[in-house]
């Protein structure tokens, strides 16, 4: 069964005819054509598919596409504007928080959500750990990701 849904992706309105069984991840990757978000498990274990739905971090592999009807989606592709990396992206580059990069699109969104949430608050390294605990990285050991998040919090 198919259903027509409407949502915005990175600010652009999209109207799509989707199989009701599809995940948001499949729709983003295979219909919208945005392959930034990755599938590492497909069942909510790894966070590689993380995107923001109405500014809330979700695993798009277990978020049905039809639930996104009427909502606004943010993906990694929307974080770099006018050729300028977001502060989170820039910090990931400078701190070496990227290796194979497969977890990176999801992590960038998790850190973006963290940054927006903790903008004017004090936080600790353990807050960073806890708030990113749904995202697995097998390459970095997380240390450089903490450093990237810390640096991004100091920038606009």
């Amino acid at each position: 069964m198919n259903k027509i849904i409407t949502f915005t992706v990175n600010g652009k309105k999209r109207e799509l005819n989707v199989d009701v069984r599809s995940s948001l991840l499949d729709v983003l990757r295979e219909i919208v054509g945005m392959t930034g978000a990755k599938e590492g498990c497909g069942v909510g274990e790894c966070g590689a598919c993380s995107v923001l739905v109405d500014d809330l971090l979700v695993d798009s592999c277990i978020y049905m596409a039809v639930w996104a009807d009427g909502k606004s989606i943010r993906t990694v592709e929307g974080e770099c504007r006018d050729g300028k990396l977001s502060s989170v992206q820039k910090s990931y580059v400078e701190k070496g928080a990227v290796q194979c990069g497969f977890c990176t699109p999801g992590f960038v969104m998790a850190s973006t959500a963290f940054k927006e949430r903790f903008k004017d608050k004090t936080f600790t390294r353990d807050d960073i750990r806890r708030e990113h605990a749904g995202n697995i990285c097998r390459c970095t050991g997380y240390e450089s990701i903490i450093e990237a998040v810390e640096q991004s919090m100091e920038e606009d």
């Binding site: 930034g36 599938e39 770099c80 580059v93 990069g101």
Partner: peptide, 23 residues
Amino acid sequence: VDRVDAIAKVTGKARYTDDFFRP
């Protein structure tokens, strides 16, 4: 030196095998 592929990877532009999937 910053990784030569870091920007491709933080912006989601880096293409992995499954990203070559076409209808």
